[in-house]
Design a protein around this nucleic acid. Structure first.
Lengths: 146, 146
DNA sequence: GTGCTTGCAAACCCTTTGCAGTGAA
DNA sequence: TTCACTGCAAAGGGTTTGCAAGCAC
């Protein structure tokens, strides 16, 4: 179990959850794939690490991980229920071809939030900024979307 | 049929689609509700305008409208398949209590897109910026989410 | 009149729930 | 040892598909 696994295991334990083989298998899949994956895909890959992994456990674990902010849902035009490991903040970049998910710091949004608040009167509690496109590798390769 | 209906009817016709009663009923629902609605909800409200409207037609029509950029999917934490009429650009504000969807101009994002492009090498093709919070009315009323 | 659209019913598939056995602490 | 967790099977619910009838053009 590598360093990051241990960190996440700590978070789970502190939140009162048990650290189990199925959960570690799912985390390991998310960690080794910097792309968004559907629950089915996570299940398939998770079985390569832990044969007995059930799809139901994947769903339940993803809910827990999402609740703890460890993983998060990625929304794309067609897929609304895929997940990727959260890597720090709430802004990400999705490659439409290979599915890689990259998070980026986003201080530039603060003044924008403020101006929207002033114009609309909304109390803004959260936001989702997702950019889609092609990562540099996929730009040079061409081909169809996932 | 009011002015905006006619405009949209034109767009449909130009794209090779027929302008039918079910489609107009669905459009009218979207136009009269500045909030995101699930296909089921659109179906229910659409029946008030056209009794015979079928749920399947709602799904098929929403796909067409989404494809033409007339309506668009609204992604929220729990609901990924709700729709609202597109009102000009790709940035919106969702009230978590009443479900109102407001679009806002967003020039402030241009420099941000550019800096992300430089840092990551991504070819950025599109983005989704969704802010959530409480509209001014709901701020003064309190109460539970939808 | 032609053939795109529609609504119904049924098929599909993803997600959740119930439950008894299992294993982390 | 305890009880949270798991996998299986089944239920549940939303979405899509097949097809004959209907309607826009």
């Amino acid at each position: 179990m590598d360093v990051v696994d241990s960190d996440i295991a700590q978070v789970l334990r502190h939140a009162g959850y048990r650290v189990t083989r199925p959960r570690m298998a799912i985390l390991s899949v998310l960690q080794e794939n910097r792309e968004y994956l559907s629950p089915q895909e996570i299940h398939r890959r998770g079985r390569e690490r832990y044969q007995g992994l059930g799809l139901v456990t994947v769903y339940r674990t993803l809910q827990i991980l999402d609740g703890l902010g460890i993983a998060r849902r990625v929304h794309t035009r067609d897929r609304c229920h895929s997940y990727a490991l959260a890597r720090g903040d709430r802004h990400y970049l999705v490659c439409r071809r290979c599915g890689q998910v990259l998070e980026f710091p986003c201080d530039g949004l603060v003044p924008l939030v403020e101006s929207v608040r002033q114009e609309t009167g909304y109390l803004i509690e959260g936001h989702l900024l997702e950019m889609t496109g092609l990562c540099s590798e996929c730009q040079s390769q061409g081909g169809a979307d996932r």
